[in-house]
Design a protein around this nucleic acid. Structure first.
Lengths: 201, 201
DNA sequence: CGCAACACGTGAAAC
DNA sequence: TGTTTCACGTGTTGC
């Protein structure tokens, strides 16, 4: 094998033909251009070689050959990865069936004139009565409970009923409430639950 | 731009120098070898070009240049995909946090002497009173409801309370019950809910 | 020695 | 027109 440093190619001084041209001034106009072109090509090949991890030989031809096989490998692995990811996403979404069911639930709710809503009734500084109507989705109850927990609400006398694709949640919650503060943030609370639904499956 | 068919390159007949060599027999032995080498290199470049989707120009230099950018793109997308996949795998395992929380819930339940159980009280041929204590897990409520729905149970007067990592579910369900049949299958029902829990996140 | 790989200068075709 | 790109044959070098 040719002994050559990986990065620094020592340019061979071969073929330097000092051809004794008769007309020394007209040494062909494109000489410089051709040199530049060759240099550009060599540099490009060098960059290409630096990108390919496995280099069997330093030959120009083998550099390109290795680049070819490397591109093929990359394409294959890329395809495999994207397919694997696609499968993973598909299985992670719980199947389109679930989505359709949720869509049906929304339709059913709309057909029956049920709308998502949240109503907070202030009892006293430590007690609220919360009523929430949500589209019935997988895990929505857990997300709701988690939101309540995140807000520091302690649930008691909780009741849940589902019908016509909707879920009615009503609960007497205990905590330190600053009067009407939370009551005015009901929409925010609803958004929190909704966003939490969107985050996980 | 050079007019050239994408796939079939018509070989230029340029530079065919019929140099009037004095010694016609010794036209330099490496002529054939050099031709073969050039052809090999050209062919490799052709293959490389066929692999790169975006080709700005047919030039040798630009072919390599495009290949370089393409390889860089492939490497980047490959890295991105693998990282995305890694994240997805990590989050798809339910997250160690969630597992830990569920484990904590189980510990807390055990510490408080609460055990998972199901108790079915027969009211009449159309009504049952069901009480279920389950470990509080993400989505367990939905799974429970789905199981009820699968069994053809119609829920009414449903109440849910969570405490100490456990979830208490009690409901008055309506349906066509064949007396004690379902009552004896309570363990089966519990297993169904548990297995449903295991299926999804 | 031959073999393989390379850079070079050059004529010509394409733009 | 001139510029660019190409293939060619060759001299040369390292193995």
């Amino acid at each position: 094998m040719r002994v050559q440093l990986p990065a620094i190619i020592l340019p061979r001084k071969t073929g330097e033909r000092r051809h004794g041209n008769k007309d020394n001034n007209f040494v062909s106009k494109n000489l410089h251009a051709e040199r530049k072109r060759r240099k550009k090509l060599s540099d490009r090949l060098l960059v290409l070689r630096s990108l390919v991890p496995i280099i069997t030989n330093m030959n120009k031809a083998t550099i390109i050959e290795d680049a070819i096989t490397y591109i093929q490998e990359l394409q294959k692995t890329s395809d495999d990865l994207s397919e694997e990811l696609r499968e993973m996403e598909a299985s992670s979404e719980g199947g389109g069936k679930q989505m359709e069911m949720e869509g049906d639930a929304a339709d059913e709710m709309e057909k029956c004139g049920i709308k998502e809503e949240i109503k907070v009734t202030y009892i006293d500084g430590n007690t609220l009565l919360i009523k929430i109507v949500l589209q019935k989705k997988r895990g929505c109850f857990t997300k709701l409970i988690e939101t309540m927990d995140y807000l520091g609400f302690e649930l008691s006398e909780t009741s849940v009923t589902t019908f016509k694709g909707a879920m009615l949640f009503s609960s007497c919650v205990h905590g330190k409430f600053v009067d009407a503060l939370m009551i005015e943030q009901t929409e925010l609370l609803l958004d929190m639950i909704r966003s939490k639904e969107g985050n996980t499956c």
